[in-house]
């Protein structure tokens, strides 16, 4: 492979960096400046960033996070499957149905256990 093959990537890099620089430069000369305390905190939305780090979290967050990962993985797995779906024919459909059925067993269990309720 020649080094020139990387030229489009290099051009893309220059455009990306250039766009960012131009936007920052333009907004700094055109934009109005009005500083409020809200604007000065690291994250404008979400939690108050100052305070004790060792606050207890509700264990519910972890369960939701775990559930998210499971279905996230499922989605990731579905993508390559969808790409070659036609070659796999009926075999692929059955395999994926079994995979999703297994996930569903876990989901039904979690649901029935009441892990999704936030009383």
């Amino acid at each position: 492979m020649m080094i020139t093959d990387y030229l489009p990537i290099f051009i893309f890099l220059v455009v990306a960096v250039g766009f960012a620089l131009v936007t920052i430069f333009l907004s700094s000369i055109i934009g109005k400046r009005k500083i409020t305390p809200q604007k000065m905190i690291p994250y404008e939305c979400g939690m108050d960033p100052i305070g004790q780090a060792r606050k207890p979290f509700s264990v519910k967050f972890y369960i939701i996070a775990m559930l998210f990962i499971i279905f996230d993985i499922e989605a990731v797995f579905l993508y390559p499957w969808a790409v070659i779906f036609k070659e796999l024919k009926i075999f692929g459909l059955v395999e994926m149905a079994i995979f999703i059925a297994i996930l569903l067993v876990g989901f039904v269990y979690v649901w029935k256990k009441g892990a999704l309720e936030w009383e």
Partner: peptide, 8 residues
Amino acid sequence: MVLLLLSV
């Protein structure tokens, strides 16, 4: 898996 469903 069947028993897991059964348990709930």
